[in-house]
């Protein structure tokens, strides 16, 4: 089981590195939103600071959503998913590995980029660890929940808008807990409760969504 894990991560890494636009697009989107906001709102640092938790989280959420539409599409079109489905490997394990690999190469860079952009929004540097931690716990949930939507819309030629409609309601708890952690930290409360809620959502998503993703893909393949 571990060897298939590493070969799949290696395959995903190769594919993403040979089509770097797919990796860079969400990062560029994330940065652009956060760079343009101070210009539009004005340099009043207190206002920026107070809206920055929500701003960073909304930008991260949309950036992840943007990257997910293509998650299974090329594998669906070239027959790779059929090979996954007929193999004796558990499809849920394969899709979990694929989504985690995708997060590793698109979600993690976003988390790593966030401190820089948060400083530009005037977020005091002592709050950066909470921001990074909340994104680190939250973005895998966004990827996994989005993958359920991507699996269900994989057979559709233009599933982009439908994917957003399907997944955005599921994203709301993550958004509330993620930005809530940072809001609490900014107001001098402990963010621990929010972070623990986020962590439990992460555990739930890692354990349950692979089955939903696999079921969604099987529906897509059987049509």
């Amino acid at each position: 089981m571990t060897s298939i894990f590493f070969s799949l991560v290696q395959r995903e890494a190769r594919l993403l590195c040979r089509r770097p636009a797919e990796l860079i697009n969400p990062l560029v989107f994330f940065s652009l939103v956060l760079v343009l906001f101070p210009l539009a709102v004005g340099p009043e640092s207190r206002l920026l600071q107070s809206i920055s938790p929500g701003l960073i989280w909304v930008a991260a959420l949309l950036a992840v959503l943007l990257s997910l539409d293509a998650l299974f599409r090329s594998d669906f079109e070239d027959g790779s998913l059929e090979q996954w489905a007929v193999s004796s490997r558990a499809l849920s394990w394969l899709v979990l590995t694929k989504v985690l690999a995708h997060w590793l190469f698109s979600g993690l860079p976003l988390v790593l980029l966030s401190p820089l952009l948060a400083l530009m929004l005037g977020l005091p540097s002592e709050h950066i660890p909470v921001l990074v931690l909340s994104l680190l716990l939250g973005t895998p949930v966004l990827s996994l929940l989005g993958a359920v939507g991507a699996a269900l819309t994989v057979g559709l030629k233009r599933g982009g808008l439908l994917l957003a409609l399907l997944t955005l309601p599921l994203y709301i708890p993550v958004l509330i807990f993620g930005s809530g952690a940072l809001q609490a930290e900014l107001q001098g409360f402990s963010p621990l409760g929010y972070l623990l809620w986020l962590a439990s959502l992460t555990v739930l998503a890692v354990t349950l969504t692979p089955f939903a993703i696999a079921a969604g893909l099987r529906i897509g393949l059987s049509e």
């Binding site: 070969s7 799949l8 594919l15 070239d78 790779s80």
Partner: peptide
């Protein structure tokens, strides 16, 4: 061993990378 009309070959990978992945997938 299933080979559909779409063969499951990734265009971005080389022939060898494709086969070594498919072999480890299908044990």
């Amino acid at each position: 061993l299933w080979m559909g009309y779409a063969t499951g070959i990734k265009m971005l990978l080389t022939a060898e990378e494709n086969l070594s992945w498919l072999c480890s997938l299908h044990q």
